[in-house]
Every structure is written in C-alpha cells, then in structure tokens.
C-alpha cells in the first residue's frame, strides 16, 4: 500500500519536473525562465528527498531558493539597464570601477 502510493508520488514528481524543465528551456521571456528555474529548484529538492539524499536536498534548497534565484533576479535588472542605453551603462561602469578601486587603495596603503 505504502509503496504503491510512493510510486505514484514519484511518477507525478518526475512528470512535473520534466514538464517544468521543458517549459523552462523553451520559453523566450527571460523573467519567466528565472521564475521557472526557482520552482524547478524547489521541486528538485523534493526529488532529492525521494532519492534518500537529504543532505543534497538541503544544499539544493539553500542554493536554489536562497542564492541562485536572487542572483538571477539581480542580474536581470542589470541586463535591462544595459539594454536601455549606453549612458546608463557608462555611469554604472564608472561607479563600479570607483567601488572596486577603493579596497585596492586601502590594501596598498
């Protein structure tokens, strides 16, 4: 009884993961792909749990939900700015260089 229900759960999880991965790769909107990727990470953690690897599931939950998703979203904003025009990009780059130049000077001093 228990094993047949577990098998149903696994099959449903695998089908959802496959459909999610296909939509994630075939979509053209980048933001949609990022959100689908976050959801994929959450479901992949469930899949790792079912494969009896709770440690990998813990890492997947922490990295997928906590690190990769916000990084992708921040990068998306930066990409939009770059697409918007050269002036914006220049000011951003200058600010970035100033920001990076500071610690080097303090280290040299």
């Amino acid at each position: 009884m228990s094993y047949s229900i577990l098998t149903c759960f696994d099959i449903l999880l695998i089908l959802t993961l496959l459909w999610l991965g296909w939509r994630l790769l075939s979509t053209e909107d980048i933001f949609k792909a990022v959100v689908l990727f976050i959801s994929f990470g959450l479901l992949m953690a469930l899949a790792w749990v079912r494969m009896r690897a709770p440690d990998v599931a813990l890492a997947e939950a922490a990295l997928g939900a906590g690190l990769t998703g916000p990084l992708f979203l921040a990068a998306l904003r930066r990409m939009k700015r770059i697409h918007k025009g050269e002036r914006r990009l220049d000011s951003d780059e200058n600010r970035g260089e100033d920001h990076e130049a500071d610690p080097e000077q303090t280290q040299a001093a």
């Binding site: 933001f31 976050i38 959450l42 953690a45 749990v49 709770p54 599931a57 813990l58 939950a61 922490a62 939900a65 906590g66 998703g69 916000p70 979203l73 921040a74 998306l76 904003r77």
Partner: peptide, 20 residues
C-alpha cells in the same frame, strides 16, 4: 530541510521587489 525552505522563502520575493 523544511526549516531552510521556510527561512529562505522570502528572499527571492524581496530581491524581486527591490531589484527587478
């Protein structure tokens, strides 16, 4: 694992609101 999930649940949404 559920604890980590719930701890990090708000992070993506907040980054989305503030950055994207």
């Amino acid at each position: 694992i559920a604890l980590v999930f719930s701890l990090l649940a708000a992070l993506a949404t907040m980054t989305f609101i503030r950055r994207t």
